[in-house]
Computed example of a mutant assay.
Amino acid sequence: MFKKKKRIPAERKLVTITDPKSVVSEQFRTLRANIKFAMKDKKMDTLLFTSASSGEGKSTIAANVAISFAQEGKKVLLVDGDLRKPTIHYTFNTLISPGLTNRLMSQWKFEYIVKNSGVVGLHLITCGPIPSNPAELLGSTSMDVFIEEMKARYDIVIFDAPPVLSVADAQILSNKCDGTILVISSGATDKGNVVKAKEALKASNANIIGTILNNFKLEKGHYYYEYYGERV
């Protein structure tokens, strides 16, 4: 008999809230600073997080980076761009609907789909009802209009996208965002898949501003999130 996999409580994932003085939280502040350095010479209102494959931690990192920017005083929007296996509603313990798909398919007004995160300065837009045509919705004119409207409302808009090698969604969305960050899980991500993910993003004209090495173990009880320039 197999044991049911235990879900990690959301509060343990949001270390920037639960333990702001920890080593990991400090690394998120370092990551925030490096993103700002990368944004220095270019206007970068929209930022996308993706990975080569599933389970590499890109959703957790996207959420903590969003919180970190909000803690700095920025007005931040975190959008669940994974319309196949969304997770933001779990992470922030809120409802999946209404959300992004309500806007893209039925033109719901912004005030009906935006949610409070519980963090000052950070708003959420969850997935909404899971659609049958995610790639088409993300590539639509409605998505373009949505992005432009959100850029006018927020200092930075952060998208959590699906893994690059699983579906075309991340490529489509990365083409619409100002910057893309690729998350790599230490000791787990296949190097060949990282190269393939980079090539796929480049093919869609994504602006890859860097990569993140996730789950690098420093010592017992601590995990290290580190930002790198583009080295893959």
Rank of each mutant, 00 (worst) to 15 (best):
I212H: 03
L137S: 12
A135V: 13
A200Q: 10
V183W: 00
D190N: 14
G192K: 13
T91V: 11
S51C: 07
I184S: 03
A33Y: 11
K109W: 01
E149I: 07
N64T: 04
I158M: 02
G187W: 00
I156P: 04
F110H: 06
E219N: 08
P163C: 07
I156D: 00
G179A: 15
M150K: 02
F37Y: 13
K196L: 15
L182S: 05
E26P: 10
P9R: 00
T141N: 15
R103Q: 12
K21C: 07
A152Q: 11
R7I: 13
P86E: 00
A33H: 08
T30R: 14
D160T: 03
C177I: 03
Y224E: 09
K202M: 13
I181G: 08
I67V: 10
G99N: 03
S166W: 01
V76G: 07
S59L: 05
S185G: 08
P98Y: 04
I88W: 01
S174Y: 06
I181F: 03
L100N: 08
Y225S: 14
K42S: 10
T211M: 09
F110S: 09
A206V: 03
R84M: 12
T141E: 15
G210Y: 00
N116K: 13
D178C: 08
L47V: 04
Y112T: 06
N207R: 14
Y224C: 08
S132D: 11
R29T: 12
N214E: 03
P162N: 02
L77Q: 02
R29P: 10
D45S: 11
V167Q: 06
L104S: 07
T60M: 12
S68C: 12
V114F: 00
L124I: 01
T18Y: 05
N193P: 01
E11R: 14
P131T: 01
Y224Q: 09
L218M: 10
P163D: 02
I208H: 03
N102S: 12
P9Q: 00
L95P: 04
M39E: 11
H222L: 14
R32S: 11
A63W: 00
V145T: 13
N193M: 14
K58G: 09
D155T: 00
M150V: 02
I209Q: 05
L218I: 11
T180V: 07
K176Y: 11
A63T: 00
D155K: 03
N133F: 10
L47F: 04
D41P: 05
G99V: 01
V194N: 03
K202I: 09
I125Q: 01
L201A: 06
